[in-house]
């Protein structure tokens, strides 16, 4: 059933910019339009392009934000989240912990 909702309404997670917009809702309590505008501005794209796989895949690859298909040597997981936290200017707690473990 979750998959049906994802197909019908979801931004698409790391396929597109869904995770980035979700971070804004979670960390800044932004409603959907504000969160989309914020992320689009940070990425330098139109809001409409946030769910366009063709555009978002290249951006994610170029910025090291993690892509849905696995690319050897490309950031994913905590390393991608580190980049996401810096790009969006939001605190991601797992990244903060990771940084503290590295003494950064």
């Amino acid at each position: 059933m979750h998959t049906a909702h994802i197909m019908a309404s979801c931004m698409g997670g790391i396929r597109t910019a869904g995770d980035l917009v979700a971070w804004m809702q979670l960390t800044r309590r932004m409603k959907i339009h504000e969160a989309k505008r914020y992320v689009a501005e940070k990425l330098g794209v139109d809001v409409f392009e946030l769910t366009d796989e063709e555009i978002m895949r290249e951006i994610r690859k170029d910025l090291g934000l993690g892509t849905v298909t696995s690319i050897a040597g490309s950031p994913k997981g905590i390393r991608a989240k580190w980049r996401i936290a810096e790009l969006l200017g939001v605190p991601i707690r797992s990244v903060q912990l990771f940084r503290s473990q590295l003494g950064i």
């Binding site: 019908a8 309404s9 931004m11 959907i32 409409f48």
Partner: peptide, 11 residues
């Protein structure tokens, strides 16, 4: 059915 393009939300 699905939402119109551009009207997707967070799940």
């Amino acid at each position: 059915v699905s939402v119109e393009p551009g009207r997707e939300v967070i799940v």
